[in-house]
Amino acid sequence: MITGKTKMADLIHLNHKLLPVIGRFGISLGFGDSTVNEICREKGIETAFFLEVVNAFHDPDYYPQENLRQFSLQLIVDYLRNTHRFYLDKKIPEIEEMIEAMIRDCYPGKEHIDLIRVFFGNYREELIAHIEREEKTVFPYALMVEEAFLKGSLTGEQLEQIRNRSMKEYQEEHNDIEEKLYDLKNIIIKYLPQPQDVSGCTHILYELFYLEQDINDHSRIEDKVLAPKVEQMEKVLLEQYPLSDG
């Protein structure tokens, strides 16, 4: 497990996939022998939160700390929003550019690559819709629950919202964006007539595997860090305001 005393350099040696994660916290390389504690203090990052994210990311089996007040949900939501931006503003355009480059490079099967372009475009639209749903409904709901929890009071409207739609239900909504990514990989690996220069496809595949992994880890932070905290708060709130009141 990664702790405050772990050296930041060791953390990267332990799992280099944490590189983009620390990047999202605004931490850049060149940290010498500084520990997580030291760097977080220097950058004004809540250490408890940082540790929860890197541990959840690094260990699929990690269980978050119980302490609800340890850090604000706002931090988690901000982090998740940053990750969304990373996908939409960086990763997706990068992959699109790779596909465009393959079409430009006069590869004989242009029309095949064009199919991949259209398919990826669809995937992007779905990812955007999914992200918007989270940012416009799930995150505001989570923050509302936290606000009520910290205040220890609840308006009738808020109570109604919690009773009607709990965090559990938000989580259960299934979507097929994961499946689309899986299909795209398989189409390129198994069925796409390959050009003479295979490096284009290899790069795209590499990026798709990376994106898939990162999105899975991102979902795990929603499932294992955000959702359990909101659910515990819901439980406390509903115990304070039993159904007979309404």
Partner: peptide, 11 residues
Amino acid sequence: LGIKTVAGLTV
């Protein structure tokens, strides 16, 4: 085929 979605099957 190892393809799950309609869009993938179409491709």
